[in-house]
Write a protein that binds this DNA or RNA. Structure first.
Length: 505
RNA sequence: GCGCCCGUAGCUCAGUGGACAGAGCGGCGGACUUCUAAUCCGCGGGUCGGAGGUUCGAAUCCUCCCGGGCGCACCA
């Protein structure tokens, strides 16, 4: 069972107090190391003034060895002050966990598939797709840290109207003609025309290269045309009806907003929605306990469609999950850049990474909650890159790496040689938050909590560093232990959002 | 019209029931013979869009209103 020092403390305090309680970190130092509002919660049921309950709980809790003192405060909080022994054992637990720290604690392991990006291969990966990937990949990494088995999948269309226009555009250039008005016109179309063969696999290869550079690795790639072969077998299993010469799914009866067309009137060709059906079956038949779709807000209208299909086919809709995120707006010199695939002025992810770097790109796109639209001034992001929080956090990591290099094989111990300083205690408490931060980010499907926490860790470390020497201090062994744990926590946080943890800067 | 998302410091945003609301950037002023100054310390900056309601307690939950974004295809 991986360490969670705060949870363990809460359990111990709760046992002593005879009530389940949660701990929070008060904003004011006078309010103790941790505080609980449990007395306020109990007041109603016990018909007793919260201050009175708080006083009783404080007394009970003081019996614990790690508690120096506890006191009732405010409207009915219990403020808890801890002895150095607690900080030592918390630090020891963190170090023992090593790479596993921050994760675990899940009841059962799930097989999870995160399908993301899934942009059709009609052009290079754009910054808008990158947010999809940065978000989906961060969620995937949170699942992995928690102990689940995750596969990342890319689904793409290789047939249909859009792809026909794309191929025709490349063919036109190869014949020395201009692509048609509704075709594709970017410089990349000319690059593809210079190569031989079907441009679709060539385009995909390039997209995969961009995504690898963005540090997203896909385990599997799924083609729409291949999945469509199962349509004749699967469509009869759906609840459908004929209207206006088309075949409709009665999805509104299964939780969707509306019914969807599966086969067009006229040529009876399958729609994109039809292809969703064999694809969903394919996912569930492959045994994923949870199939996650990552969709941009412009597709949020279909967020209930997937679970509706699952219901229609008799699968548990709980296995299907849709994550929606808001768009990215890039500005350059204050002017908004439109991100349409067919225009020449689109922002490619590769260009974006060229300008601000992979680390800053991943950071910026994971740093905001999925419900928040992201505004990035590219000029500012590149120009002021030295002041980006991502470098602030990386710098803390590099500083620690430097200290540990200089320390060589000096002794390391979580047991302090003397009384702990305020900065040391604050840092340990901060490190102890990681399991809760990671668990919360996973539950909310909101990875932004991780980079925000990483800034706090770096903050506490830089302050500690400024006040105290590590090497050749009378607390060297303890401080080396603190450095090791801090480095591990920062590295973990950076990794969760796909950012490198540098040894030097 | 209906649905989803957003509205918090000059700017970009954290913060989904707790104590006087936070960070970065920007502004002003300080700190390097010291393990990395890409750092640290201080100052200034807010009717948390508005109005009601629930609660011992609301930026956070509920209702309504205002403002902005995105959807409401036999495109994907």
């Amino acid at each position: 069972m991986p360490a969670d020092p705060v949870k363990e403390l809460a359990a111990a305090l709760g046992a002593a107090a005879g009530a389940e309680l949660e701990l929070e970190r008060p904003g004011e130092p006078e309010h103790g190391d941790y505080a609980t509002n449990v007395a306020l919660r109990l007041a109603g049921a016990r018909r007793q003034p919260p201050r009175e309950i708080a006083a009783e709980l404080a007394e009970a809790v003081t019996e614990l060895e790690v508690v120096e003192r506890a006191e009732p405060a405010g409207p009915g909080f219990v403020n808890v002050f801890l002895r150095d022994e607690w900080f030592a054992s918390a630090l020891a637990g963190i170090l023992e966990d090593g790479d596993a720290y921050g994760g675990g604690g899940v009841a059962g392991q799930e097989r999870v598939q995160v399908e993301m990006v899934s942009a059709n291969p009609t052009g290079p990966i754009l910054v808008s797709h990158a947010r999809n990937g940065a978000y989906g990949d961060a969620v995937a990494r949170l699942f992995e840290l928690a102990g689940h088995a995750v596969e990342r999948e890319y689904y793409y269309n290789d047939s249909g109207g859009q792809m026909d226009r794309f191929r025709a555009s490349v063919e036109a250039v190869r014949r020395g003609e201009e692509p048609s008005e509704d075709g594709y016109h970017g410089a990349y179309v000319r690059d593809l025309a210079a190569l031989k063969g079907d441009p679709v696999p060539l385009m995909l290869k390039e997209m995969e290269g961009t995504l690898e550079r963005f540090r997203i690795h896909f385990d599997t790639w799924r083609r729409q045309s291949e999945l469509e072969e199962r349509l004749p077998e699967l469509l009869p299993r759906l609840d459908t009806y004929e209207k206006d010469g088309a075949l409709w799914a009665r999805s509104s009866a299964y939780g969707d907003e509306e019914d969807r067309v599966l086969l067009r009137s006229g040529d009876r060709s399958p729609t994109y929605r039809a292809a969703d059906v064999p694809y969903l079956v394919d996912k569930l038949e492959r045994g994923f306990d949870r199939a996650i779709y990552v969709l941009g807000a412009d597709h949020h209208g279909t967020r209930n469609w997937y679970a509706a299909v699952a219901r229609m086919l008799g699968y548990d809709p709980e296995r299907v999950e849709v994550l929606v995120y808001q768009p990215v707006h890039l500005t350059r010199g204050g002017e908004q850049t439109k991100m349409s695939k067919r225009r020449g002025d689109v922002v490619f992810l590769d260009e974006f990474m060229d300008e601000i770097g992979v680390d800053a790109a991943r950071w910026y796109l994971a740093n905001r909650g999925p419900d928040q639209a992201i505004d990035i001034d590219v000029d500012l992001a590149a120009e002021r890159s030295q002041k980006n929080p991502v470098y602030y956090v990386q710098y803390a990591h590099a500083r620690i790496a430097g200290i540990l290099r200089n320390a060589g094989d000096a002794a390391v111990s979580a047991v302090p040689a003397g009384p702990l300083a305020a900065e040391e205690r604050e840092l340990v408490k901060r490190l102890a938050e990681l399991p809760a931060v990671a668990a919360d980010a996973l539950v909310k499907r909101g990875p932004q909590g991780v980079p925000n926490y990483a800034i706090r860790v770096a903050d506490d470390f830089h302050r500690f560093y400024h006040e105290h020497r590590v090497l050749e201090s009378d607390q060297q062994a303890f401080r080396l232990a603190l450095c090791r744990a801090t480095r591990a926590v920062i590295a973990r946080c950076l990794d969760l959002v796909g950012v490198d943890a540098p040894e030097r800067m």
